[in-house]
């Protein structure tokens, strides 16, 4: 009988990391805009994934788990950062400049979406998950995923149009 040991887990995780890290980084980068921050968040999420690998390894879409964890960590980072700045009596730090080649309007518009809609867009369109898996991960029925995606895209389109208008104002 073969005993599944730590070394096997380690090997399995290392293979997952090698295969998934770049995709996860790109998706998180589109959502946060800042390359270094995205890399830190993804590394943190993979660290948590390895810490809970017995569970994450059984997840229907481990990449989605990593991306969601990274984006949730970003929310925590942003809140903590804002609080520290407030305590220091400084002005709120402006959003970091977008990674070169990345559409900064898209990053800003995505950031302004409600969390659920943003998550559905990230999982369905950027990670190419199907409706059923997305629903399983987010704990919602397939119909809700579809309507959330539609509403999210619509809101994203409006946000982009509004940002476009603002840029045109001299």
């Amino acid at each position: 009988m073969r005993v599944w040991g730590v070394e096997d887990d380690r090997q399995e995780f290392a293979e997952f990391y090698a295969a998934a890290r770049d995709d996860c980084l790109r998706v998180v980068l589109i959502s946060v805009g800042d390359r270094q921050l995205a890399e830190d968040l993804v590394a943190e999420a993979f660290t948590r994934a390895w810490t809970a690998w017995r569970k994450v390894g059984q997840h229907p879409a481990p990449r989605a788990w990593v991306v969601r964890t990274a984006l949730n960590a970003h929310v925590s980072w942003w809140r903590r950062h804002r609080r520290e700045l407030a305590l220091a009596g400084c002005e709120e730090r402006p959003a970091p400049a977008a990674h070169p080649g990345l559409d900064s309007s898209l990053v800003t518009a995505l950031r302004r979406l409600p969390v659920r809609q943003r998550e559905v867009i990230v999982l369905r369109l950027l990670l190419d998950l199907d409706t059923t898996t997305t629903g399983e991960i987010l704990g919602m029925p397939g119909g809700t995923v579809a309507s959330c995606l539609h509403r999210g895209l619509d809101a994203l389109r409006r946000e982009l149009a509004s940002l476009d208008d603002q840029e045109r104002i001299p």
Partner: peptide, 18 residues
């Protein structure tokens, strides 16, 4: 457009080793 943006980041790689 979202797919294009994602695909345009092909040169972006994680530098953190396992």
């Amino acid at each position: 457009h979202l797919h294009e943006v994602r695909d345009s980041l092909r040169e972006v790689h994680m530098t953190v080793p396992a």
